[in-house]
Design a protein around this nucleic acid. Structure first.
Lengths: 348, 348
DNA sequence: ATTAGCACTCTCGACCTGAGAGTGCTAAAA
DNA sequence: TTTTAGCACTCTCAGGTCGAGAGTGCTAAT
């Protein structure tokens, strides 16, 4: 069923491309005459109609009703994305501006991730999704214990890769800040770069303080390990609210619903993108049978970060008729940017 | 213009209440006959119509068109909320379930805040908003410096109140972890509980390491101070997408737009709720003239936390015809819950 | 003060209709 | 064999008409 380049004449490819382009612009069926008038084709509309017929038979375009123009089918978009789309690199001025925003104040991920989401949403005119990077393997880097009040202690746990977990512990008795710091230092010396497995295999200590802290460390590391992905940042909802595809407010079928159900969303992300290597961009068109809610949508996803060490995911979700060239470029660009930033600030 | 209790006969109050209730349920204009039939009033529809006329003249209800039922006006809702609404406490079973969810695993704010948003959204069937608590006055609690790689250092700064800021510093030269820890200890001893002002007034040090760290501390404290409110959690969008008030997808007037524009949202929150003491619940009906986008919406807001020390804000945004009794109770309940949790784990 | 009764008004969905858009087909031209 | 002009045909869509039904306001009686 897979169609390849050679199935279509070059004129058919042009026509398909134009239909995709025009329909992306207007969200309306595209008439043969429109193609002649607006794109200056040097053939007649009747010829175009003949070609359209062929494309219809191939299942790449369809008519909403007998006397309407043509609309690309899901298959049509797939063919377009696989064979015809040309990436339209962002203008270098834009790229510079964006890079600057990221580099000028090095505030760290908590600043970069929302910024990435915002940039991505703007550039693609769709909803953007960005997850925080997450370590492939969980290992201890550093711990700090801070006395708060009475027997309560704030534990700050830094993992290799840079994830930071914090927890407030209610210890059995009151410890001085000095003894807490000492204990933390012991941990720092003994556990650095140890994996969760290694730490769990340690001899239990007789010291109740050490016991409690160790338990908390293991607990937090488990929690981190169970995470498929880190925090999720989302932007550009308003880009998409006014599009007819999303205006399908009719009950629960709306793609917007998916965006609210974090578990579903995580599932979507992980199924598609987590298998892929960093650098590859995946385009998911029309839910691919699995995602009812995405019937009229497309998703473009990729990973960023450092292969086998620390990676996050980012992408966009928009109507199926989206400017794929721009969108894919934008995703690539932002992913590369984030990869660089993560590499620069990796905690080893 | 302010209307008080005594302006209305008790029968008028009942009728107004019923109209509000019924319209909340159906989103339709309420007919006089409906009130007789569905609520078993012991008077005739003609009498009800007479009373309705009075209420219309008072500006509390209105007719969408000549021969339609009545709909509460903005004023009507205000009167209802000020004088007639009765808080319908959550069933104690529900309260227990919810409390349990919060208390069973004490994972800290990063777990509680999204949970609060989720609970609030469910209970109110509206969009919920929850901000992280933010200190009233910024003061130093603890610092930690962790060598990462080469001359890069991860600084973890804990402020009084418990806010944690992290930053990766590229220092001029390479320092050993020992010397970093020592430096951190110095800071911890000298700066504990010092305010931003006090820290800025310190004598500059000759040591370049100390200089750089101090600058970073001051920088981060400034950033924190400038924050009006912490992170923002939002839930329950789907509750509201299907309501006619929000379906007004017609371009930029949609209240949904407001939710995407964090600055606007922060502005909204701060103007209304930040002036208020903790414990008070504010109800903002129909944008109150200031917020075009909220013409058909209401917002219920309150603060939680510890007066003059550490507080956040939470609330809901929904259609103007919302079940105010339930909604206000839900907001109160969740706010109290969070206040308790924050108090328990306050970092002094 | 309340209510039955009734005329009046306005909305809403159903139905019809004509204009326009766009096609498919055929027969001629290249 | 491919392209194109021409035309009949189909379908949508906006506008207009219409009658039923909902709900009111008013009046006169209780």
């Amino acid at each position: 069923m897979k169609r390849n380049m050679t199935d279509l004449t070059s004129r058919q490819k042009i026509i398909l491309s134009l239909i995709v382009h025009e329909h992306t612009r207007t969200a309306q069926p595209v008439a043969s005459k429109t193609l002649i008038d607006d794109y200056g084709l040097q053939i007649s509309s009747a010829t175009v109609r003949n070609e359209m017929n062929t494309l219809s038979e191939l299942g790449l375009i369809r008519q909403p009703h007998t006397s309407a123009g043509r609309v690309p089918t899901e298959e049509g978009y797939r063919f377009f994305v696989s064979n015809l789309v040309q990436q339209t690199a962002l203008p270098s001025a834009t790229r510079n501006t964006i890079s600057h925003q990221f580099y000028q104040s090095r505030r760290g991920l908590d600043h970069w991730l929302p910024l990435a989401a915002s940039v991505l949403a703007n550039q693609s005119q769709a909803v953007s999704l960005v997850t925080a990077p997450h370590s492939e393997k969980i290992a201890f880097k550093h711990i700090e214990l801070i006395s708060i009040r009475g027997s309560q202690v704030l534990m700050v746990l830094v993992l290799v890769g840079g994830e930071i977990r914090q927890q407030i512990l209610a210890l059995g008795e009151v410890y001085s800040q000095e003894s807490l710091s000492q204990t933390a230092n012991q941990f720092n010396q003994n556990l650095e770069n140890k994996s969760l497995g290694q730490i769990e295999a340690l001899e239990p200590s007789a010291d109740p303080l050490i016991q409690q802290i160790l338990a908390a460390i293991i607990d937090q590391m488990h929690l981190t390990e169970e995470l498929v992905t880190g925090e999720l940042f989302l932007d550009g909802l308003s880009n998409v609210l006014s599009t007819p595809e999303f205006a399908t407010i009719n009950q629960d079928r709306s793609p917007l619903r998916l965006l609210e159900e974090r578990p579903m969303l995580i599932d979507l992300l992980s199924r598609t993108v987590l298998t892929e290597d960093i650098g590859g961009v995946q385009v998911l068109i029309g839910g691919e049978g699995t995602w009812q809610e995405l019937r009229d949508c497309s998703v473009i996803l990729t990973r960023y970060g450092i292969q086998d060490q620390l990676s996050g995911m980012l992408g966009i979700l928009g109507p199926m008729r989206m400017p794929y060239g721009q969108a894919i470029s934008a995703v690539r660009f932002v992913a590369d940017l984030l990869s660089d930033l993560v590499t620069d600030t990796l905690i080893e």
